[in-house]
Amino acid sequence: MKAGVEAAIAALRDHYSPRPVHVFPTACGGAHVAIEDVPVGPPFAQATSWVGFFLSSACPEDDTYPFFFREDLSLADGRELMAPFHAKHSFPSGEAPGVPVRPAVMVSRRQRNTACWKQESPLLKLLAVLKWMSQR
């Protein structure tokens, strides 16, 4: 794995310890990452979900998105999940030999602040997405 990917994973493990963090390195220096039992906040019917995402070989220079959550993720008040939630996806997406495939809801949130260069670590991006989700 590229040094930037390893550093990002170390930060994720540190933050989410003792929750399991599964890492599946790719041939080009990136990694598929899945974190178990992550709290998703009161708007959701489920207390926790696994979260999956891909760290590319450009990490931490690139934007980390999308994130994948359990396939039955739903809002507690019965409202339907709208974009940028996308049902009927799977994690990991595309070809990923050796990585267990999980049906998933995909959440795609890109960085919107383009006024200046912003290097946002995968951990900070994940926390920002979780915070955004908790405010649905």
Partner: peptide, 9 residues
């Protein structure tokens, strides 16, 4: 960063 991401996937 978005283009970096897309080019790296």
């Amino acid at each position: 960063p978005t283009r970096l991401r897309e080019e790296s996937m």
